[in-house]
């Protein structure tokens, strides 16, 4: 009976192979995944290009008039690129500005903290297994949960303010002050994602043969020099991966920040993805053309970063 079942499953594949030849069979197996990828990734990307080059508030592509590069022109229309107020689409440029600052602070903080944490976790210490897991837990949490936890901590009558007041301090409206809320979006974002990068760096650290450290000890190398001349150079491939992945993710930051601050106060923590989302789907008339054009610009930046990452990991393989 089982043999009959097996023959039943084999039959269409054998027939295909007879028709196509053994050399083409791999394509048959890759086809389903390609189809899924094509329909859910490539097709929307192509549609997005159509949306970016059309205008109007209609959802159906056929009802949108073609306007060429008008949306891009409008987005990039600025008197002085360094002055947000001189731009036609000032909310776009404000979110770009916010995103640039966010990416700079968040990535540097996260890479440095991940490196330090990985170095500490690489040593023999009590409860090492526990700590290694603990740093990874936030990565497993849904971004909404992360944001709600921190909102609960940071709100005016939240845990942090309660501690401040109990110690004789003043209540600080963390999420209502532009600088503080920016600071906290960086903190929350680092907290939520650091574990993943710690893992990558930890793997890299453990790949360094321990007898290199012993040879360095025999060579009388002080600790800082061991880190600077041995650990860090050998960790460089992993650092490059962490840096580029972190950059890409920072540019895409949205979920936890949207729930934490909603982009507020004002537009102090509104980053580019939120701008795209709101312009296209929330708020007033859905100006999908502008949003699609903005998303293509962001996509271009991410493409450059991804190419950098490919270069970095190719160099690492040498």
């Amino acid at each position: 009976m089982r043999a009959a079942l097996a023959r039943l499953i084999d039959w269409p594949f054998e027939a295909l192979q007879r028709a196509l030849g053994a050399a083409r069979m791999p394509y048959v197996f890759v086809l389903p995944n390609l189809l899924v990828f094509g329909i859910f990734v490539v097709l929307p990307m192509l549609l997005n290009i159509w949306y970016a080059t059309t205008s109007g508030a209609e959802l159906m592509p056929g009802q949108r008039p073609f306007t060429g590069l008008a949306n891009f022109a409008e987005l990039l229309d600025c008197g002085n690129y360094l002055n947000v107020a001189s731009c036609r689409q000032d909310r776009f440029w404000r979110s770009v500005d916010n995103t640039l600052w966010f990416v700079a602070f968040q990535v540097i903080t996260m890479v440095v903290l991940s490196l330090i944490t990985a170095l500490v976790l690489n040593r023999k210490m009590a409860l090492r297994g526990f700590f290694r897991a603990v740093f990874f837990y936030p990565v497993l949490l849904s971004p909404v949960v992360v944001a709600l936890i921190w909102k609960w901590i940071l709100q005016p009558d939240g845990v942090l303010n309660a501690i401040l007041v109990a110690n004789g301090g003043q209540r600080v409206p963390f999420l209502l002050d532009p600088s503080w809320s920016f600071f906290w979006t960086v903190v929350v974002s680092v907290w939520a994602h650091m574990g993943f990068y710690v893992l990558i760096l930890l793997a890299g650290l453990q790949a360094i043969p321990p007898d290199l450290y012993e040879a360095a000890a025999m060579d009388g190398t002080p600790q800082w020099r061991v880190f600077w001349r041995i650990t860090l150079p050998l960790l460089m491939p992993n650092m490059a991966v962490v840096l580029v992945l972190g950059l890409i993710r920072a540019v895409q930051a949205f979920d936890e920040i949207y729930v934490l601050t909603g982009g507020g106060p004002g537009t102090a923590t509104q980053y580019i993805v939120q701008y795209i989302y709101e312009t296209a789907f929330a708020g007033q008339v859905h100006i999908m053309g502008l949003a699609a054009a903005a998303s293509m610009l962001v996509g271009g930046v991410l493409l450059v970063l991804t190419l950098l990452q490919l270069l970095a990991s190719a160099r690492a393989k040498q």
Partner: peptide, 14 residues
């Protein structure tokens, strides 16, 4: 208080 108008961004309702 900024807790209402300032707590969210964009066009979000609060």
């Amino acid at each position: 208080s900024k807790a209402i108008w300032g707590s969210v961004g964009g066009a979000a309702y609060r």
